[in-house]
Simulated assay, not measured.
Amino acid sequence: MRIFLALLLLAAVPANAQNFTTAAEVRPILEATRGNWIALREYEGEDLLYFTHLEAWRCGLSQIEYAVNGGEMAVWTVEDCYEAEAQPNAIKADGRESYEPMPLGHVEQVQVRITYDDGETAEASYERAAVLMP
C-alpha cells in the first residue's frame, strides 16, 4: 500500500530537473518505501547486497551507512547528483556496481542509516529473509 501511495505521489507531481533533489522531496518517497532500501541476492557463490533503491533517490541525501550482522557502520559511496542535467537522479554507474559482494550466506541482518541533506536521519533494520530476492 505504501508503494502504491508513493507512486500516486509521483504521478501527481510534475517531473522536472528540480524535483526529487532535496530532503523535503525525497523523504516522503523513502519513508513510504523503507522496506525496499536494500535487497540481497545470492549469485555465483556470493551474497550481493544491493543499494540500488537508495542510489535512485540519492539526491536529497548526504550519506548512506550500513552495517552487516551487527558490525561497524560503513559508508556506501554513491554517484553525485547531476543537478545540471534533465535527470539529476540518473545512475550512470561508470566503473562501479550498486552492490557489495560478500561470502555466500554471510548476510544475516543489515542495519541502514540514511542522512538527509537537511541533517535528519532515518534508520531501518532488515533480516536476510525479508530482503532476499528469489
Rank of each mutant, 00 (worst) to 15 (best):
C81S: 07
A23T: 06
A11L: 15
A15P: 11
V26Y: 01
R27C: 01
K92S: 11
K92Y: 13
A11Y: 14
A84K: 10
L8E: 12
G95T: 13
R58V: 10
L54N: 00
V75F: 01
A130R: 14
D94L: 13
L49F: 00
A124M: 12
G60W: 00
I114N: 02
P134T: 07
E97D: 15
L5C: 11
L10Q: 12
A67N: 06
V75I: 14
I29R: 00
E97S: 09
Y50D: 00
T121V: 03
P103W: 07
M133H: 15
N89I: 02
Y116V: 03
L48P: 04
A124S: 09
T121E: 04
E72W: 08
L54E: 06
I38N: 01
V107S: 01
H53T: 07
L48F: 02
V131Q: 02
M102C: 01
G105W: 12
T115A: 04
T77H: 15
D47H: 07
A90C: 13
M102H: 03
I3S: 10
N36Q: 14
T52E: 11
L61N: 08
Y82W: 13
L54I: 05
Y50T: 02
E85G: 13
M1I: 13
N69H: 04
W76C: 06
T22N: 06
L10V: 09
A32R: 00
Y116K: 09
G119L: 05
S125C: 09
I38E: 06
L49S: 05
I3C: 09
P101A: 00
V68D: 03
A24T: 13
E46Y: 10
R113C: 05
G105H: 10
A6H: 00
N36W: 08
M1F: 13
A124E: 03
E25I: 04
Q18F: 09
S62L: 00
W37T: 01
P28N: 05
E108F: 04
Y82K: 14
R96S: 14
A67I: 00
I38C: 03
E72C: 10
Y82L: 11
I29N: 00
L9I: 08
M1G: 14
M133Y: 13
F4H: 15
E79D: 10
A12V: 12
I114L: 08
T21P: 11
S62D: 03
M73L: 10
T33A: 04
Y50H: 06
T115L: 03
E100D: 10
V68L: 05
V75P: 01
E97W: 11
R2A: 11
G71F: 02
A6P: 02
V13M: 15
V78Y: 15
V75L: 08
E25H: 05
D118Y: 11
Y50F: 03
Y43T: 10
E120F: 01
A32T: 06
P101Q: 03
F51G: 03
A90G: 11
A23K: 06
Y116S: 13
G45A: 07
